[in-house]
Computed example of a mutant assay.
Amino acid sequence: MWARAFGADERPVWAEKPSPALALLKFLLVAGIVVVIVLPLLVVVSTSFASDQQIREAGGYVLFPTDPSLEAYRTIFSSPLIFRALGVSGFVTVVGTLLALFVTTTMAYALSRPVVFGRPMLMLIIATLFFAPGMIPMYLMVKQLQLLDTVWALILPGLFAGFNFIVMRSFFMGIPKELLESARIDGASDFRILWSIVLPLSKAVIAVIGLFYAVGFWNAFFNAVLYINDQSLWPIQLILRSYVISGNSLSADQLGVQQAPAPQSIKMAVVVVALVPIVVIYPFLQKYFSKGVITGAIKG
């Protein structure tokens, strides 16, 4: 292919081997980016393991703990406040992701097939990408549905995303129609076709959309700020916002323990605990990520 486009002895620029100086420059650039990304994470993790004395000596942040301690994590997991917040976030993420996948998958499959009023409904969904409902109308709707101070106020408003729908619909439209028509001729219903044929062929895009929804539900805190006044229903991200971003400290009384470690150690430990679930889940879905996004965006 190169020979046809560039000649027998000529190669494209991107196929040429870089000079030693250019290779060194690329290495230094990539290494600098890695340091900028990894260093703050290392400081957060190290501070969460550091002792009270070392945190005081270092001025609040520790790069390498000399005497690592798990006291901050023991305090977190023995604290009713943090443990309850993790439970709320876990419930919202799991239930919200499953419900969102169900709604998005069924709607994407329905509108990927020729149906009555399919195009006007598709235009309405696309319009949601350009015109947001607004904070006040959303609050009034949640209030009217009597969802204030319930976990469903954290789930239902984010149950559907137009972008995720478009990606999944495009993927479904790329499935050969002959395969679906042959199943219909054999007497399979739409539900049977979706369950037995479409979903097994769509594992990549379902994994990617599921990851999008899960990250969104886990990291969401603004809905909790708007709709939740009961502190027992706060998700872990709202705890982070209140006690890390706002600069408040977690006292022993607030944590529900007799004695708490250094406030900075507790804060960094909460950050680590909030990051771990997504960091752990992502490697298992990484092989589907590029395939699902690229295929869903191109097909159809």
Rank of each mutant, 00 (worst) to 15 (best):
Y282H: 11
R192H: 11
N229P: 01
V273C: 05
A183Y: 03
L24K: 14
G187Q: 08
I175H: 03
W14H: 14
F289K: 03
L199E: 00
A50E: 03
I245V: 15
A110L: 13
P261I: 10
L156I: 15
S112A: 15
L22D: 12
I236F: 08
Y227D: 02
S182C: 11
L24C: 11
G210N: 07
R113L: 13
V279N: 04
I197Q: 03
R84S: 14
V273G: 02
R192C: 06
V279Y: 05
V116C: 03
G210V: 09
P133R: 07
S48V: 00
L159R: 05
F171V: 05
Q231L: 09
L180Q: 13
A50V: 03
V30Q: 07
L99Y: 08
P277C: 06
F171C: 05
N223H: 12
P157M: 07
F117H: 08
S251L: 09
V94T: 14
F289R: 06
S182H: 10
D186I: 07
K26E: 09
V94H: 10
M168P: 00
P18I: 08
I245Q: 15
Y282V: 13
I294D: 03
L41P: 00
D253K: 14
A3V: 12
F83Q: 11
Q144H: 13
Y73V: 11
I55Q: 07
G59Q: 08
I55L: 11
V272Q: 05
S249N: 13
S251R: 09
F222W: 13
L24V: 14
V94Q: 11
V62I: 10
L25T: 13
F217T: 00
S182W: 02
L124S: 12
S48F: 00
K26M: 12
Y243D: 00
A269H: 06
L148S: 05
Y109C: 00
R11P: 00
M168C: 04
I155G: 00
S265Q: 15
I209W: 01
M173L: 12
V205D: 00
G87T: 11
V115R: 14
I82E: 04
N248L: 14
W234L: 12
W14A: 12
D67F: 09
A224I: 06
G32R: 11
D9G: 08
K17E: 13
A8S: 13
I155A: 01
G32E: 07
P114A: 08
M168Q: 10
L156P: 04
T97K: 03
S46W: 06
V88C: 07
A220S: 14
P176K: 06
A8K: 15
F49K: 01
F77T: 12
S48Y: 01
F171H: 10
K267N: 12
F212S: 04
